[in-house]
Simulated scan of single mutants.
Amino acid sequence: MAQAGVISTAWADEPWTLDGAAVRVSLMCWGRDRAPMPMLDGLAVPAIHADLTAGIANLTTARRLLENAGVAFMGDTKGGAFDVPGELARQWLLLPTNPNGRPNADVLRPWANGMDVTRRPSDTWIIDFGWTMTEAEAAYYVAPYAHVAQHVRLVRATNKREAYARAWWRHVEARQGMNKALTGLHRFIVTPRVAKHRLFAWMRSPALPDCQLIAIARDDDTTFGILHSRFHELWALRLGTALEDRPRYTPSTTFETFPFPKGLTPNRPATADTANPHSQAIATAAQALVVARDRWLNPPELILHVPEVTAGYQDRMVPKNSAATALMRGRTLTALYNQRGKPEGAWLDALHAALDTAVASAYGLAGNLTDDEVVVQLLAFNHSHTVTAVEN
């Protein structure tokens, strides 16, 4: 007899048409009908977990780990047309200092969303007055303030949240915690919240990640390598927001539950890596991956490195000519990772295999585990961490 409160039959992801709109739905049944085993998507399984999976590992039992807290953040939510084309931003950067004696560089930052990572960079900048600047202080930055006053103020005045309407010159969610965590880092890791492939990339400070990116406040190659390994990818695919065909990456359920190898957790000081052979091996493999990947994305034969019009920003990479522009249009991270498992992607597969081997060694695991075996081991590692974050 199936017990009340226990899922007896479920369909995890089914196509549905509602009022002419194609949607995806999940269906669950509870009851006391006689059945030898629960049924998931038409197959008999030992049990159905709360996330509508039936694997050996019940990942709904994964705990948030304290050593991962305060490292991964959703990016900035602007709440208005604060973003401007790079050409306009550069005009403002070249203007004389403002009546307060300060340059517009104080409030202008390169900006990126998920498509800037998965596709080609859009050369978009953003006006950012921070989360403490008063309107009177913002007004001293004449050109950026005038732009926001024209394009944002009237829209924000109608916002139902009084704080958003009142402080219209500020972003609605400036992510103070993220900005503080990124302070002092010359680069940090980003990954799209939702994407076809679980990709990680470097972003250079003072660039501002949009809310469609998750920012990870680490600048070391070891953390980058662990995150881009098969181990973290499998974990992220299973721990992403449930019931989506493209799982959503979240700081809480995905990053903070992931058990990093002992001694390589995100709360470690960067200086500790020099004495850890596993860290060095992972870092070397990650560097090789990034170097080769970046060269495919931006071949030196096709691009020019152009210094920004003022100091403090990363050089721009621009095509050398119209032919280069056409060729580079198809060189995106998504296009590159679509080649995995194909002859043209053999070099990328080999680099990821080397990275996976280094990460497996850091865990003390064999390199030939199946996907299910990897997830089972990671869940066991998660449970073995005795210090966990307070659940909320």
Rank of each mutant, 00 (worst) to 15 (best):
M1D: 06
Q3C: 07
W11M: 13
W11D: 12
P15M: 01
W16Y: 14
A21R: 15
V23D: 05
R24W: 05
V25W: 01
R32D: 12
R34E: 12
D41G: 09
P46A: 03
P46F: 00
I48W: 03
I48K: 02
A50F: 03
T53S: 14
G55S: 06
A62K: 00
L65N: 02
L66Y: 07
G70H: 05
F73L: 01
A81G: 02
Q91M: 10
L94E: 09
N104V: 02
D106L: 03
G114P: 04
T118Q: 08
R120T: 12
I126H: 01
D128S: 11
F129R: 00
T132W: 09
A139I: 00
Y145R: 00
H147Y: 14
H147W: 14
T158G: 07
T158F: 10
Y164Q: 11
R166M: 08
A167C: 05
A174G: 13
R175E: 08
Q176M: 08
Q176Y: 03
M178R: 07
A181N: 04
L182Y: 10
T191V: 10
R193F: 06
K196Y: 06
F200R: 09
R204W: 06
L208W: 03
P209Y: 11
P209T: 08
D210P: 04
D210C: 08
C211V: 12
Q212K: 15
A217L: 03
D220G: 02
D221S: 13
F224H: 13
I226Y: 01
I226N: 03
F231G: 03
L237H: 10
L237Y: 06
R238Y: 10
P247F: 07
R248S: 13
T250R: 12
F255G: 00
T257Q: 01
F260H: 08
K262Y: 05
G263P: 06
A272P: 02
T274L: 13
N276L: 00
P277E: 06
Q287S: 10
A288T: 09
V290R: 09
A292W: 04
L297K: 04
N298H: 11
H305E: 12
E308F: 14
T310A: 15
K320T: 11
K320V: 12
A324F: 04
A326T: 10
M328H: 06
T332G: 03
T332C: 05
L333C: 12
L333P: 09
A335R: 15
L336C: 07
Q339H: 08
K342Y: 12
E344Y: 05
A346P: 00
W347T: 09
L348W: 03
A353L: 11
A354N: 15
A358R: 03
A366K: 13
G367M: 06
N368A: 07
D371S: 11
T388K: 04
